[in-house]
């Protein structure tokens, strides 16, 4: 469970998918980094990750960590976005029988978790089938 301050720091990525592109070699980092792991450059330009891609691999979680107990069972996947960036996220609005490697999905804004009944609600992205 993120603290409110950590959640707040991650808003540009969780809400707007903001990333950085190395001006030396063009590699995209999500979340942004200070030093490029590919070429060592410290020069970056702001960019955004692509908002659709295809499932590379997935699994269905039946025994989740505490904040996600009420959502189980749910699917998690690694998705290669159309710009080559690979990110992990929940895959929702998709029957498990329709999950498949290569399936087209897109990012959608959803509730990720909440800090009990009285705490902060954490928003961010999940994947939904591209229709």
């Amino acid at each position: 469970m993120p603290t409110p301050s950590r959640y707040w720091r991650e808003i540009p990525q969780r809400y707007r998918y903001e990333a950085s592109r190395c001006t030396g070699c063009g590699k995209i980092f999500f979340p942004p980094r200070l030093v490029c792991s590919a070429c060592g450059s410290r020069e970056f330009e702001p960019t955004k990750i692509a908002e659709a891609g295809k499932v590379m691999t997935y699994t269905v979680i039946h025994t989740p960590p505490q904040p996600f107990v009420d959502q189980a069972p749910y699917a998690m996947g690694i998705v290669e976005l159309d710009d080559g960036v690979r990110i992990t996220g929940q895959i929702v609005d998709c029957d498990f029988s329709e999950l498949a490697v290569g399936k087209r999905v897109r990012l959608e804004f959803r509730r990720i978790s909440q800090d009990g009944k009285a705490g902060v609600i954490f928003y961010g992205y999940k994947f939904v089938p591209e229709i």
Partner: peptide, 13 residues
């Protein structure tokens, strides 16, 4: 709405 959908998420989309 699914448990992860609310007024805010639908408004954003």
């Amino acid at each position: 709405p699914a448990p992860d959908q609310d007024t805010i998420t639908m408004s954003v989309e």
